[in-house]
Design a protein around this nucleic acid. Structure first.
Lengths: 172, 172
DNA sequence: ACCGACATGTAATTCGTTACATGATTGC
DNA sequence: GCAATCATGTAACGAATTACATGTCGGT
């Protein structure tokens, strides 16, 4: 019968198919895997937990230390996830404020432009390094997760190359 | 004095610094320029128009055919935009449902996986072609907008290359 | 036995999406 | 002069962010 859920809830179900987790752990699991391309805040997770529990798609365990409650997926939950994940995914949604800065670049002080690009270039370089450091292990242990990681690496390289081509960024 | 506005409102102000537009035209202007990397829905535009008008940052003209009302930026509006655009931009936010499909690929029917990737690859190929077709004109007429376009082209190429490397996608 | 960092969750607010309504134009 | 499409906007709903509150552990 498989209830209808939104994408956020469905992705939570997906993680819970692997093992029971608390809200905090779910958040950490997103952050350390697909979080960069599937952004979710902690509050959203807690909200969806309530909804999923109300719909019987997960079960919330007893309260542990610091109000910790572990969520376990139920079989209707599994069923719902399976049918959701097999459906055609929607288009990606991107909001990239730095591109507004460059798009409106003609009215941005030159220094702000350079600062913004330098700062963001550095952040992307850090992410790229982090991704590259994980690749070997992830590829060995979780081939499907490695695809996301490969996407991340390709994406970060592209962004860095783009920064490098900006006229106000020093070459080299 | 420059009021505080959110990023959506600020980007609307940005477009209005160039010329007065109705809500519909603003939407079209986003779509045909930075829309892919700065997603905004029409309804948001109308809401922000109300807020911006209430704050005196824009002025809404008389009603034309089909309730059309042209918005004109005021000098406080310009001031607000200038100070907003000079500030450090936030990180990009991405929600890419297809990456969930691959991330959870081990429980996705092989056919769904192939269908989803094929469909999305085609969409990206179309976008790339469209971008490439625009580049010459945009580069000549609007160098800063061309940077966004170059980003778009690099991004689409990266996505397409990633699709090409997926084990279940036919090579060539 | 205190302080700081980590872990956990909720509530209020803002933002974004979907569904709707309707008025002009255009093409037949 | 009707149907289809384009242009315009609103309202209701659902999703996401921010700000908050609090509890627990680990070190000193």
């Amino acid at each position: 019968m498989s209830s209808r859920v939104n994408a956020t809830a469905a992705s939570i179900l997906g993680l819970l198919t692997r093992k029971p987790m608390s809200g905090w752990e779910l958040h950490a699991a997103f952050e350390s895997s697909i979080g960069q391309f599937w952004s979710i805040t902690r509050s959203q997770i807690y909200r969806e937990i309530r909804t999923l529990a109300a719909g019987g798609l997960i079960e919330v365990g007893a309260t542990g230390p610091r109000e910790r409650r572990v969520c376990t997926i139920t079989s209707p939950g599994c069923e719902t996830f399976r049918s959701w994940i097999a459906a055609m995914p929607g288009d990606e949604l991107i909001r990239f404020p730095l591109l507004l800065t460059t798009f409106f670049g003609d009215v941005v002080p030159r220094e702000s432009l350079r600062d913004a690009c330098t700062e963001h270039r550095d952040r992307h370089a850090e992410r790229l390094a982090a991704y590259e450091g994980q690749l070997a292990v992830v590829a060995a242990e979780a081939p499907f997760a490695a695809l996301t990681l490969e996407f991340g690496i390709a994406y970060e390289r592209t962004v860095l190359a783009w920064f490098g081509g900006l006229p106000w960024m020093a070459p080299g």
